[in-house]
């Protein structure tokens, strides 16, 4: 019957004391709680023995053997429960690391996939081909822009933070290349204010919103306005993109929203509390309002 108490202590230690004190990095509180448990346990064990049939035995001997017996049992229980608990804690932590690693890899892969948009590459090459045929003065510049774009996609995407100028440069080149091929009914307004010097940003955190506007906001028929507004006040970046939506003349393929969702995940992972993202999607307009605190 006396073994009920050490078993009770085992579970108390496993489920309450270790998570509450030991894992919360309060070793002194943990030690005190252990000592307190030990004292209570010894008292209980002695009372129990005293009340049981061994009363005579108890009286005939000093309380020492019971103390040693209880203490020994206590220490064994303490270390077994501590060991098992820590083992399961380590396993949990390891699983968590593997999970995070996997998630990171997945999101990285999918945003890489989203980046090298073959359609855009071919469209741009096609524009450049046309420019070359008519021997336009813009040809050389367009090749340079595409080359800068590809450099950013291929080399800088692996770096956690790049100078803000690079991200802005990509957006500007991207817009310029689109301007080459779009007809006049698609108006693109790009505004930038502030000084990007010395600021860093996670690469391709703004680009998906710009790509999205061009993907869904260009038309052969309707008048379209794509507005991209970037302003910097010290290290606070305000980024606004909006486009009116072309009327649906025929069934368009529905948007999957994967690109935006991925970017939201990345913002959450990288910028945590240092960002706000508002997206409004109505029948005729799509608007993104992102504020980032840069480092």
């Amino acid at each position: 019957m006396a073994s009920v108490f050490p078993i009770g202590f085992y579970y108390l230690n496993y489920y309450k004391l270790i998570p509450l004190f030991y894992l919360q990095k309060k070793p002194i509180t943990y030690l005190l709680s252990i000592l307190l448990s030990l004292t209570i346990l010894i008292i209980i064990a002695n009372i129990f023995t005293y009340l049981s049939d061994n009363r005579r035995l108890y009286e005939s001997r000093p309380p020492f053997p019971f103390l040693i017996h209880s203490l020994l049992l206590f220490v064994v229980v303490l270390f077994v429960s501590l060991g098992l608990r820590m083992n399961s804690e380590w396993k949990k932590a390891e699983e968590e690391i593997i999970k995070i690693e996997k998630e990171k890899l997945n999101s990285e892969l999918s945003y890489l996939k989203a980046q090298i948009n073959p359609h855009f590459l071919f469209n741009s090459l096609n524009s450049i081909y046309s420019l070359a045929i008519i021997k336009s003065d813009q040809t050389a510049e367009a090749v340079m822009k595409l080359s800068n774009l590809m450099r950013y996609v291929i080399l800088d995407v692996h770096i956690p933070f790049v100078p803000l100028e690079k991200e802005l440069g990509y957006i500007i080149n991207f817009i310029e290349l689109h301007r080459l091929r779009l007809a006049d009914n698609n108006q693109i307004n790009f505004r930038f204010s502030g000084n990007p010097e010395g600021l860093l940003i996670s690469p391709f955190i703004l680009v998906p919103f710009v790509e999205n506007a061009f993907k869904h906001g260009t038309s052969a028929i309707d008048s379209i306005n794509i507005n991209i507004d970037i302003s910097l006040v010290k290290n606070r970046l305000d980024f606004k993109v909006d486009n009116n939506k072309p009327s649906k003349y025929f069934e368009n393929q529905p948007s999957t929203g994967v690109g935006i969702e991925n970017t939201r995940k990345r913002l959450e992972m990288i910028y945590k509390k240092n960002y706000t993202l508002k997206i409004s999607d109505t029948d005729n307009k799509f608007e993104v309002d992102l504020t980032l605190l840069l480092t």
Partner: peptide
Amino acid sequence: DDEPLSLQIISGYASQIQGMVLLKTFTNPL
């Protein structure tokens, strides 16, 4: 064609073909 540049190219080719008259080009299908 929605791309004015392509229309420019097409116009160029069409003008080289005898007996073919490219009356007009459109970026707006409607």
